[in-house]
């Protein structure tokens, strides 16, 4: 009896080590979206200065998969991510919309895209950050995959790197397109 009581701590600590070691490397900071599987919020954002089209909820309910990327000119991770957005736009064959988040000066977004290149189908300007809140954005950059019915299917928090693009985002889009 006493022997078995003594075994309890051994088991407990082994379990503790096990659960921590299997989870320790994972990113604990990502908060999964509360909106997965739910319809994308209603919104309508104006275009960047000197451009024609903004984005709105209607763009997401056209019956095909689409992507929304939240970016800002003041956000350096966005800069690092940008080449991957270009690849995404080129390889995924779905519209990629840009949500330009909280620029101090609307012109900043335009300048940034002029400098970095513009892969977006259309860009909407969210000066107040309110639409981003409706999407549950808490840090830029974030990327949403919207299915054909306008439901949020996936959310990527933080910059997209090559691995995420190839192993997560592209397969997910392909899968959604199939059915």
């Amino acid at each position: 009896m006493r022997f078995w009581i003594a075994v309890i701590p051994l088991v407990l600590f082994a379990a503790l080590a096990g659960i921590f070691l299997t989870n320790i490397g994972k990113d604990q900071s990502v908060i999964p979206s509360a909106l997965i599987g739910k319809p994308a919020p209603e919104f309508s954002l104006p275009p960047l200065p000197g451009r024609e089209t903004g984005i709105s909820h209607a763009d997401l309910t056209q019956g095909h998969v689409s992507v929304i990327n939240v970016f800002a000119s003041w956000c350096v991770p966005c800069r690092a991510e940008h080449p991957m957005i270009k690849r995404l736009a080129a390889e995924a064959d779905v519209p990629v919309y840009g949500l330009n988040y909280k620029e101090k000066d609307p012109q900043d977004g335009v300048n940034w895209l002029d400098e970095m290149g513009d892969p977006y189908t259309a860009v909407g300007m969210d000066i107040s950050g309110r639409t981003a809140i409706d999407f549950g954005v808490y840090g830029v950059p974030e990327t949403f995959i919207i299915d054909g019915e306008g439901k949020i299917a996936y959310k990527q928090v933080g910059p997209i790197d090559e691995k995420t693009l190839e192993d997560v985002l592209l397969p997910k889009i392909r899968e959604l397109k199939k059915g």
């Binding site: 006493r2 022997f3 009581i5 003594a6 075994v7 309890i8 701590p9 051994l10 407990l12 600590f13 082994a14 503790l16 080590a17 921590f20 070691l21 320790i24």
Partner: peptide
């Protein structure tokens, strides 16, 4: 990870001894 494993090993032993 080493800090964690060190903790688990040391205290598994300590509590085992205690329970004995």
């Amino acid at each position: 990870a080493v800090l964690l494993v060190g903790f688990c090993v040391l205290f598994a032993g300590a509590y085992y001894l205690f329970a004995r």
